[in-house]
Amino acid sequence: MIRRIPGLDTKAATDLAVLHPFDPNGSTAPDGLLVSRWMAKLPLWTPLALAALIFAWPMAALAQNFTYGDAFDTLLRWMPFLIKSGFLFNVLISFFAMLIGTLLGTALGLGQISLNPVVRWFAWAVTQTFRNSPWLVLLFIVLLAFPFEIVIGTVIIPVPDWMKAVVGLSLPVMANISEIVRGAVISVPTAQWEASESLAFSRTQTLWRIILPQCFKRMIPPWMNWYAILTMATPLCSLLGVEELLTLTRQAMEGADNHPELLVPFYSFALLIFFLYCYPIARLTIRLERRFMVKL
């Protein structure tokens, strides 16, 4: 039999343990900000270097094959269109998906700490389902399950594909925000609940006046981390026919006669835009995380 050592592999007898017990959801859990942390570690000149690399590459090829120069010219011509009609739409989708995901996720997260076991179980089940499902499958389900128009009496409201994409993307975001809220609330020491209860605060008052104000800041970095992940997932919508950056990139290449030389510059450009957008977010996320960490 393995000997159990209190404070190491079982709960410590006191809360003053120097060594925290291993807890897969606690401080020893896998890092939730992995994406942002990795990205934020890249030096500030990385975006520039990447851009230079992508634009220098067709130049280097220029000597051997003339069409790479053409490819570069073609990209330059399409660039404003790809940014204005393509990438801005990705940003728009990410905004709305984040908005819906945050609202629903907060409600779901609070449901997960409800005293009512039915509510708690339901919120937990919904959270786990959407958190552990492939995003693309969710997108397709929403696309096929949602009507293309909603009829209320005589009024017909069309539901465009991009709105369905927003709903589809907001589901996994919702589930992850739910976990962020739950984790943040349980990260506040139970002594705060007790102090508040002993002052005759109701549970609702305790939650909104005492607990949530304390953990609100702690939720911001993981929330932003999920925003970056969501933004990078928006090209999935191109599979639904939504006219976002990736779809337009493909169309632009077709418009330029589908030269194989176009592939690398065009897709690299798409990568670069996403990186340029998410890199500052990642840096800010990690900076905020450091700042809020000290306050604990």
Partner: peptide, 26 residues
């Protein structure tokens, strides 16, 4: 009324707000 070993003040409120919260809200 109860007072705890670890004080358990509300860290996001200053001293006077800590004292005022319960009478005002409860």
């Amino acid at each position: 009324g109860m007072v705890f070993q670890q004080y358990n003040l509300f860290p996001h409120k200053n001293a006077i707000e800590n004292i005022m919260m319960a009478p005002v809200l409860v």
